[in-house]
């Protein structure tokens, strides 16, 4: 990878998610600080990112459920290059395993002031940003004292 950290961006704001019918409920719920994910009506498995069909049974009937927004850091990295327009480096990307289901991983940014001290295994809570000028609320993670089961 190159280290063109100081190169000018083409755009000054974060790439805007463009939803489809499979993903729109996630972004709509996000505006109310609600983490809503699809659970297969047949298999009871929750998915992220929201898939068009359940990869297990190939059914397309999902129940959108609200999650606790709690999880633990399964993987993390602090990125020192300006890779995301609108996000100043360094920033910390985390892979969060949500408490509701083993292996249910959501990739987001860690925003707590103490993110530099965070480590794999630490508990976090997901929150959503205030909607930006284009009406998008992005998930982000904040380190917390403990995970509620």
């Amino acid at each position: 990878m190159a280290s063109d950290a100081n190169h000018a961006h083409n755009f000054g704001h974060r790439p805007r998610p463009v939803a489809t019918d499979s993903t729109r409920p996630f972004w709509t719920a996000a505006l109310a600080n609600d983490l809503s994910l699809p659970r297969c009506a047949k298999c009871d498995v929750i998915y992220y990112p929201p898939p068009p069909r359940c990869p297990r049974c190939l059914g397309d009937r999902f129940d959108w459920i609200s999650l606790s927004r709690r999880g633990r850091i399964a993987g993390m990295t602090t990125v020192h290059l300006a890779t995301i327009p609108g996000v100043e480096p360094p920033f910390t990307m985390v892979e969060i395993e949500l408490v509701e289901q083993k292996g249910l991983i959501l990739t987001t940014l860690l925003t707590s002031e103490k993110s530099a001290q965070a480590s794999v295994g630490d508990p976090v809570i997901l929150e959503f940003t205030e909607p930006d000028p284009r009406g998008v609320a992005y998930p982000q993670a904040r380190a917390t004292a403990e995970v509620q089961p």
């Binding site: 805007r16 998610p17 990112p49 990125v79 290059l81 890779t83 996000v87 920033f91 990739t107 987001t108």
Partner: peptide
């Protein structure tokens, strides 16, 4: 839409 705004696709993140 679930990767790029979070930097998952660049710099080997």
């Amino acid at each position: 839409q679930f990767r790029v705004p979070f930097g998952a696709t660049a710099a080997g993140a």
